[in-house]
Amino acid sequence: MHYVGNIIRPPSEANSILLQVTVGCSRNKCTFCGTYMGERFQIKPDDIILEDIAFAATYCKRQRRVFLCDGDALIIPQKRLVRILIEIQRQLPWVTRIGSYANAKSLNMKSPEELVELQRLGLGILYMGLETGDDVTLKAIRKGATSSEMIEMGQKARACGMKLSLTVLLGIAGTQRSDIHARETGRVITAIDPEYVGALSLMLIPGTPLYEDAVSGRFQLPDSRGMLQELFTMLSNTHMNRGLFMANHASNYLPLRVRMPGDRQAALDLIEKALAGKVDLKPEYLRAL
């Protein structure tokens, strides 16, 4: 495989074929993210992508899923992306699902008809970084979209048959807007009603603008109790018709896997026990990105 730079993928794609079709992120402006600092976004040449698909056809026959790396493969022009998906179908006929990151910009650039075409060619799940439903915080972290745009694009993806996994960040609004962030994020999740939600706890990365804000005192990250309170408020305001709300990332203090809506109240009860000191939290040295 011809990998370039940092290769990231969602935790659920750990056993997937990682096919790098772009390098970096098409936006690369979020203040909290250091993954692609200094990396210029580019779409990889078709001949390199085809070589990697051929490699996978020979050496990756036990893997049933493909994840298109890096930060936003959906930004690839439709005709090129269609050719890639067709080639995956042709050379990797055992693959049952293809996934990709997406953002509001790339979803807006695709028509509903184009998204349906991609879904029919195997692109079955999109991972979208919502981070927060609070418009003030979205602007502060330079996410490039409002909460209403996030809702519109999330609903668009789901209406076109895509499964959707949203990522949200506990702590991203700091201590000042913690409660607003939690409530507004629950509101947006409810409006989109995705199949999956992954709640991660923000970990400040040296070199990022948000890290510098924290060092200077302009941003204060909630402590473990503040993170738990956010999680409680967010889940209290989240009403999904089905699917999973997960807070079991390595960064989290209290691992949760909540099947909605049935397990919601039990999860809220567990968080309350943790806030009362009756449940042990993950120690700092075991937390990771």
Rank of each mutant, 00 (worst) to 15 (best):
E113F: 06
R97D: 14
E117I: 15
S111M: 13
D213Y: 04
E117Y: 12
A102F: 00
R83W: 00
V116I: 15
G124H: 11
S111H: 10
V168Q: 00
Q89N: 14
T185R: 13
L123C: 01
L126I: 11
L92K: 15
K110I: 09
G154S: 10
Q89T: 06
S111F: 11
L204R: 12
G144P: 14
A199K: 00
M128T: 08
V136L: 08
V215W: 03
P209G: 01
I125H: 07
L123E: 02
G124F: 05
Q91I: 04
L121V: 01
Y211F: 15
E149D: 10
T167V: 12
G198S: 07
G99W: 11
A159S: 12
I192P: 15
L126Q: 13
Q176L: 11
L126W: 13
T208D: 13
E114K: 07
G122L: 02
I172K: 05
G129R: 03
E87Q: 08
P194E: 01
S148V: 03
L115I: 14
M150V: 01
E131R: 10
A191T: 08
Y127T: 02
Q89S: 08
Q89Y: 00
L210Y: 01
E131G: 10
A214T: 14
K139D: 09
N108I: 00
A104W: 02
A159F: 00
T137Y: 08
Q155C: 11
Q176Y: 06
L204D: 04
L210D: 12
L126T: 12
L169W: 12
T137N: 13
R158F: 09
T208H: 13
V197L: 05
